[in-house]
Design a protein around this nucleic acid. Structure first.
Lengths: 250, 250
DNA sequence: TTTTATTTGTCCGTATGTATC
DNA sequence: GGATACATACGGACAAATAAA
């Protein structure tokens, strides 16, 4: 209504510093985590404990923790506490890129779960990537890759249906792309190229990767070829950028 | 104008399709861009012009443009106009990564502008990257890299102050990191490693890179070494993910 | 260098359709 | 059906940045 006096100069920031209280608390906590005061995986003191120590309201602490959670530094679990997220998993990109080996060597339990599959006619771009004729039959596999139960990446892979007609069944049996290709006589293969982009996570990927809205994903488009250089597999993987970094050694 | 009978009580959404007006306008514009009606880098008609042509309110057009901007297809500049983003620049990562050569071969005008510089004592992580003793004097250079006047990346580079005491002056003179190192006797160097992460752009980077809030940046942490393997330069570059993709050929 | 026009960004509104409880 | 919250669409005014005169 006309008479309603709106927003009487709400004090949004501390009058002196120009930085809000929750922001300063968030920065302090970030420094403490970066400085090793709180180790990865460790449980932070409860919200009430932090608030009491700093002499602020619990909700101010909550706002700070929400900021850190949105940035992927901590993870809040209702009824349990707030935990420092593990450091980023180093994911080497090179000629011999294999998910299971990478995660295995990092001392974590690897897992690749098939969450969808379909057949489609190869559109021009996909046909070019796999050196197939346009419209050729291809099989798509949607795989959610996790390490220690934490989702790492959501990957869409395509293979020629002529090459691997029973791809879905074979993958289900072994849960390994390497084993799938080996079953069809491709004992070894190598990564030909990888193109890396980044973007805010799509809604579906954000849900599957358990990401806060607006967080970034690393998008890796790759082509795998036989040792003779024949393309057999192309993948678009979306990595949770908060939990993974890609490493290139020259 | 008086006689123009404009859509009486324009339906909020298409009565049949269930798709809102701004969404349809966004889709139309997207098709026009994809179809080449508006070339990359070209300036779109002004909001008022588009609104007038379509017979809708300027704010509805703004909503459509905001959608396209959020997806990285266009970029709005206050006081100037809305521009179609160029396709992603392919940025090869390898042993011989040089910004000017990469952009040059893509047929664009490269530019590296020094926007800040400072001296600092190397903190542990930085000292390790450059194989220096902790607390050693290092020079930091903040460089904004552009191609055809469009910002591509914001990069922070560090060198040992003992190695390159006049780094700022030399860089200013040549606007090239290769020339800077050459001046100090390092005729050639190679990329030892690159670590790639991604995150939503920080406020300052977003402004410098002219990114909409929430858009992603690719973060590349790299170490350059002499041919003998001595670290001489380490850089943290933030690429505008909408305009660049990193390419790794194995 | 200064001025002016253009263009986008932001705020204030109003009315209405949609979804949910 | 009613109450409510929210998104859509429109209209207007002004601020802020830019570009051209």
């Amino acid at each position: 209504m006309a008479g309603v006096r709106r927003a009487v100069a709400r004090p949004r920031a501390a009058p002196d510093s120009g930085v809000t209280l929750w922001r300063r608390i968030a920065d302090d906590l970030e420094r403490a985590i970066a400085g090793g005061v709180h180790a990865a995986g460790e449980r932070l003191p409860g919200e009430i404990a932090i608030a009491g120590r700093l002499g602020v309201n619990r909700h101010t602490v909550r706002r700070a923790l929400a900021e850190l959670a949105a940035r992927g530094l901590v993870r809040s679990e209702r009824g349990s506490g707030t935990y420092v997220e593990a450091g980023r998993l180093a994911y080497p990109i090179g000629a011999r890129t294999r998910f299971s080996e990478i995660v295995g060597t990092a001392g974590r339990g690897a897992q690749g779960k098939l969450i969808a599959h379909w057949r489609e006619a190869a559109r021009p771009e996909l046909a070019a990537r796999l050196s197939l004729t346009e419209g050729a039959d291809v099989i798509g596999l949607e795989i959610l890759r996790s390490a220690d139960r934490v989702p790492i990446a959501c990957a869409t892979s395509w293979l020629s249906a002529a090459l691997a007609p029973e791809a879905v069944r074979i993958y289900r049996a072994h849960c390994s792309m390497t084993a799938l290709l080996a079953h069809y006589g491709i004992a070894d293969y190598r990564r030909q190229s990888t193109r890396i982009a980044a973007a805010p996570a799509e809604a579906l990927d954000a849900k599957r990767l358990r990401l806060a809205p607006g967080r970034a994903v690393l998008i890796a488009d790759s082509i795998d070829v036989t040792l003779a250089g024949v393309p057999v597999l192309t993948t678009r993987a979306r990595f949770a950028a908060d939990r993974v970094e890609l490493v290139i050694e020259s």
